[in-house]
Design a protein around this nucleic acid. Structure first.
Lengths: 218, 218
DNA sequence: TAGATTGTTAATCGATTAACAATC
DNA sequence: TAGATTGTTAATCGATTAACAATC
C-alpha cells in the first residue's frame, strides 16, 4: 500500500498559528460557529484561502453551517503539535534568554523548561520561575540525561554555531535560533530562526520607501 | 512625465536583510568581490534569485567580475534605510522590553532610543543604557514633543491596541509589534509583527510532522 | 424543501528558475 | 581576444483566487 505523503507548503504552515489565535479569541468570546466568510473578514484574508488551507488537513466544516469554533480550534492545536509535551532548554541567560524563560505561556502549549545555561558564573544557581541557571560546562551531560528535544539559542553568533552542533550531536532535535547567524545543521534537524535585526530592517525599509513615495523622489 | 513606481514584492524585501548580513560577514573577512554563484552557494539560494532580487533596485554588478562586496553592502544598507536616523520608544519595560532596550546594535543601524515607558511605578526613573523609564501617563506628551517615529510594543495584547491607536494619533509612523494581537491601523502606518508564540508553534508543527513521518503514522 | 456554505476543481496570478545575449 | 558573469527575457512552477457542484 502506498502511503500518500501530501507535502504541506510552508506558506500554509505560517498561517496556521494565526488561525489558531483567532479561533482562540472567538472561543473566549463564546462564539460557537463561524463561516469561512466571516472569519475571512476578521482576518483580512480570502475565504477561499481559509478553506483551501484547512482542507490540507481534512474537512473540518459542514456545508450550510460553517465551522464549529471549539472543534476547529482543538484540531488545529493537534496539527500544530500543541497536545504533545516538549522538553526545552534555554542557552544564554542574558536579557532575552530571561525574557523567554519568564514567558509563562510556554507551559500552556506543552513546552517544559528543563534548564537554563550561561557562561556567567555570577548567574550560577540563580533561579527563574523555579529553574536554576546552570553553567555551560554542564550542558552536554544535561542534554543527554534529560531528554531535551528543543534548545533555545540566545547567545552571540560566534558561539551559536559551535553550541548548536554540540547539541545536535547529543540528541537535540530542534533549535529556536535567536542568534544572528544561520546554523547549517543536518536536514533532519528543525530550525526556526527569529532574526530580530532583520525584522527591524524590514520595518526600516518600509518607512524609507514610504518617505520616498511622499517626497517626490523616484 | 510618468513616474514609474515599481512595486517591490514583500518576498524580495524579506530577503534583503539576509543579503546584507552575508555581505557584512564577507566584508569583515576581507573578501573584495563575489559572484552571484559563489554567494548563492553560501546562502543556499539560487544565483538567479540573487540577480533578480538585486536588479529590482538597479545594476550593482559588473559582467565578468561579479559584485564589489563593499559597494553592494553599502547600497543595500541605503535601500534598507539604515543611513537614516529614526527616533524610537519602547512601551513596556518588562523582560522583553528591557532586552530590546539593551540591544546595543540599535544605534549602529540608526535607531535612537529616546524613551522607555511602563505602568509599574517601581520602575519609575530606573535607567537602561542611560535612558530613564517613564510612566505611561507621560507617553502622549513625550511622543508629541520628541519626534518619535517608531514605537516598540512589548505590552499585553489587551492594552496594545488602545496604546497603538493613541500613538498613531500623535504622529508615530511605524510599530514594531511584539504583542500577541493584530493591530488594524490605517494603511499608511507601517506595522512589523514579531509574534513569538506563532514562531514557536511552527517549530512545534515541524517536530510533530517529522515524528509522524518516522513512526509509520499517515 | 430552500438557503447556506463547504470541499474541490479550474483559472489566474505572481514568484522562482532557466537560459542566453550583452558586456566587462 | 577569450572567459566570466551580469542583466534581463522567457519558461516553469507554485500559490492564490474564483467558481460551482455537493450536501448539510
Amino acid at each position: 500500500m502506498l502511503v500518500e505523503e501530501r507535502e504541506i507548503s510552508q506558506a500554509v504552515i505560517r498561517r496556521l498559528p494565526r488561525y489558531y489565535r483567532y479561533l482562540g479569541e472567538l472561543l473566549e468570546n463564546g462564539v460557537e460557529r463561524i463561516s469561512s466568510n466571516d472569519l475571512s473578514k476578521r482576518m483580512k484574508v480570502t475565504a477561499s484561502q481559509i478553506r483551501q488551507d484547512l482542507n490540507n488537513f481534512g474537512g473540518f466544516g459542514q456545508q450550510g453551517y460553517g465551522y464549529n469554533v471549539k472543534y476547529l480550534y482543538t484540531e488545529i492545536g493537534k496539527i500544530l503539535g500543541l497536545e504533545e509535551d516538549h522538553n526545552i532548554v534555554i542557552i544564554g541567560a542574558g536579557n532575552l534568554g530571561q525574557a523567554l524563560a519568564n514567558y509563562a505561556a510556554f507551559e500552556k502549549r506543552g513546552f517544559i523548561l528543563k534548564g537554563i545555561f550561561d557562561v556567567n558564573p555570577r548567574l550560577n544557581g540563580v533561579s527563574i520561575r523555579g529553574v536554576p541557571i546552570r553553567m555551560m560546562d554542564e550542558l552536554k551531560d544535561f542534554v543527554q540525561n534529560n531528554n531535551v528535544e528543543i534548545a533555545v539559542l540566545t547567545i552571540p553568533k560566534e558561539k551559536a554555531i559551535e553550541v548548536a552542533n554540540m547539541l545536535v550531536e547529543n540528541g537535540v532535535r530542534a533549535i529556536w535560533n535567536f542568534a544572528h547567524t544561520d546554523l547549517n545543521l543536518p536536514d533532519h534537524i528543525i530550525v526556526e530562526n527569529v532574526h530580530l535585526s532583520e525584522s527591524l530592517m524590514r520595518l526600516s525599509y518600509n518607512i524609507s520607501r514610504y518617505n520616498d513615495e511622499h517626497s517626490g523622489k523616484k
